[in-house]
Simulated scan of single mutants.
Amino acid sequence: MPRNLDLTALRAFVTVAETGGVTRAAGQLNLTQSAVSMQLKRLEESLGQPLLNRRGRGVALTPQGEQLLSYGRRMLSLNDEVWGLMRDDAFEGELRIGVPHDIVYPHVPGVLQRVAAEYPRLRVELISSFTRSLKEQFARGELDLILTTEQGVDRGGETLQTVPLMWVGAPAGSAWRQRPLRLAFETACIFRPTVQRLLDDAGIAWDMVVNSDSTRTVDAVVSADLAIHANLAGNAVPHLEIIDHGGALPELPVVAINMYTSTNGEAPLADAVAKFVREAYQPRFAAVAAQ
């Protein structure tokens, strides 16, 4: 007949083993020393094995205790994960997410929908801005999780995907043939200096005809075939298309889509949402996790 371990007693044992004594464990568990000692005794009796060698005020693990400690940690971790998942009130609060406008689609709406379904008490604020601004806000602790588009990844970041940067223009447009080459970029666009440098290296004269913080302004000018722009492959707006320049323009670099997650007091919330983001960008991750 299957028997069940007492998780309360198991938690007492793991805490005693990790803190090195009943007194410290009692303080961490907010219990009396006698209550902790009773739980340890009950666990040893149920298993029929000695788990601790009591030496004065300290304790040492028996071989059986060492073996149980490894399993106990994993069991309690899984217990806590299930508890947090099933009780949405464990995920009350507010989470601030920053995403560059050009990668909001296709994945972010699905992530937000999943968060709303699984953690209805969690309030999510979405901030759309440029990578440079998002990283500054993140560094100041104003954002809990950010996605970025960069040519590399800083310490603490995780690369979700790499995507080539492509020249885009109006459908069947000819602006890319003009010299000087007319460009339209947001003032704070992180790709702007890279594009300028590549054109300079290729000996192609250029003219920045749009200096704006508005993405709509850039899109309007480019779709009117008055300038060209650069977008991540697969993220161009419907009224623009990738330019088939046949080598007349320099090849643009591959860009990393990165995720940075806060380690402040909202970390459990950020970690939960980061898992959804990771699975959206890397479906194979979700498949492996489900096995």
Rank of each mutant, 00 (worst) to 15 (best):
D244Q: 15
A230Q: 04
N264H: 15
V277L: 12
L252Q: 08
V277A: 01
E279K: 04
A286K: 11
V209R: 11
W206Y: 15
L226A: 11
A256I: 01
R284W: 06
A274W: 01
A233R: 15
K275T: 10
L249P: 13
D244A: 14
G247Q: 07
F285H: 11
A220I: 02
A270G: 12
G203R: 10
N211D: 13
A220C: 02
N258F: 10
G247W: 11
L240E: 13
A205M: 04
T263P: 00
I228P: 14
P250S: 00
V288F: 10
Q282Y: 00
N258C: 10
M259Y: 05
H245P: 08
I243G: 01
L232S: 07
E241D: 13
I242D: 05
T263R: 14
A224M: 00
L232A: 09
S262Q: 00
P250W: 02
A290S: 13
E251C: 06
I204S: 05
V288I: 14
E251S: 12
F285W: 10
D219E: 12
D201E: 14
A220Y: 08
V221Y: 01
A233Q: 14
L240P: 15
G234T: 03
H245K: 09
S262P: 09
G203E: 01
A286L: 09
A290L: 06
D219H: 14
V254F: 03
L269C: 08
E279A: 12
A270C: 03
A230S: 09
Y281G: 11
P238K: 02
L240R: 03
P250K: 04
A248V: 04
A230G: 02
N231M: 09
H245T: 07
S262F: 06
L252W: 10
D244V: 09
P238D: 12
A290D: 08
V218P: 08
A274G: 05
